[in-house]
Nucleic acid binder design. Structure first.
Length: 219
DNA sequence: TGCCAGGCCGGGT
DNA sequence: ACCCGGCATGGC
C-alpha cells in the first residue's frame, strides 16, 4: 500500500485539478466499439488526428467489429491514415477485431460481461494492445475502474516528486488504485485532468513553470 | 523549422 | 533483463 502522504497528495492533486479545469468530457456519447478503436489509434498520437481517422470510418459506416474485420488491411490503413503509424495500427486493429469476434462473438456486451481482471489479461494477449490501451478500453469503453497511466501521468507525478522518474506502469497504476475509491468516473476524470495539465504545463522540455495549478505541491 | 502527440513491438545486446 | 529504433500524420 502507498504511504499515507502519497494517498493524501493524490487526492489533493485531483481536487486542485478539478477546481482549476472542471470536467474534461473525455469520450462522451461514443459507442464502446468506437472508443476501443480510438484507444488503439491514439497510441503516441494527437487526438485531433485520431478524430479524422474515426470520421473516415464513420462516414463509411464501418464502426462495427464484423464489418471492420472484413475490410482488407490495405483499405483499413488508408482510412485511418490521418492517425499516423497507419500500417501498424491497421494490423493492431485487425488483431483486436479478431479477438472480439473469436472470443466474444463480436459482442462488446459479452466482452464486458467478462470478469474485469480476466478481460484485462486477455486484452494484453492481443498483439498491439499494451497496458495503457487495455486500461483505456476497460475504463473508457467499459466503465471498469482501472486507472490509465500514460506519459503525462508519469511526467506530472515525477516532476512533483510523487513517484520516481523511472517508475513502471504497474507501480504507478497501483498507487492510484490503492489510494482512491475505485470509481470509474473518478478514474476517467482524473486521467483526463492529468493530460490537460500535462499539455499546458508539463511538456517534455519544460522543467517547470510558474502558472501550473500544481505548483503548490512542489517541494 | 523542428518538436511533439492519450504506445507498442521486435530485434539486438 | 534492459535498450532502442521503427512506425507517420498533422498542428503549432
Amino acid at each position: 500500500m502507498p504511504d499515507k502522504a502519497v494517498k493524501k497528495k493524490l487526492a489533493a492533486i485531483y481536487r486542485v485539478l478539478f477546481q482549476a479545469y472542471g470536467p474534461q468530457h473525455w469520450w462522451p456519447g461514443d459507442t464502446p466499439f468506437e472508443v476501443m478503436v480510438g484507444a488503439v489509434l491514439t497510441q503516441n498520437t494527437a487526438w485531433a488526428n485520431v478524430e479524422k481517422a474515426i470520421a473516415n470510418l464513420r462516414r463509411e459506416r464501418l464502426l462495427e467489429p464484423e464489418r471492420l474485420f472484413r475490410v482488407p488491411l490495405r483499405k483499413l490503413a488508408v482510412l485511418i491514415r490521418p492517425s499516423g503509424f497507419f500500417t501498424v495500427k491497421a494490423r493492431r486493429l485487425n488483431h483486436l477485431f479478431k479477438f472480439i469476434i473469436d472470443r466474444y462473438s463480436g459482442s462488446l456486451a459479452l466482452m464486458f460481461a467478462e470478469d474485469p481482471e480476466t478481460l484485462r489479461h486477455n486484452l494484453l494477449e492481443v498483439n498491439g494492445v499494451g497496458p495503457e490501451t487495455a486500461d483505456s478500453i476497460l475504463l473508457y469503453a467499459g466503465q471498469r475502474p482501472f486507472f490509465v497511466v500514460d506519459a503525462y501521468t508519469k511526467r506530472v507525478l515525477s516532476r512533483h516528486r510523487v513517484i520516481a522518474a523511472d517508475a513502471d506502469y504497474h507501480t504507478v497504476q497501483g498507487l492510484f488504485m490503492d489510494s482512491l475509491p475505485r470509481d470509474s468516473r473518478l478514474f476517467n476524470e482524473y486521467h483526463a485532468l492529468i493530460v490537460r495539465v500535462g499539455k499546458e504545463h508539463c511538456k517534455r522540455t519544460a522543467p517547470r513553470c510558474k502558472t501550473c495549478p500544481l505548483n503548490k505541491f512542489l517541494p
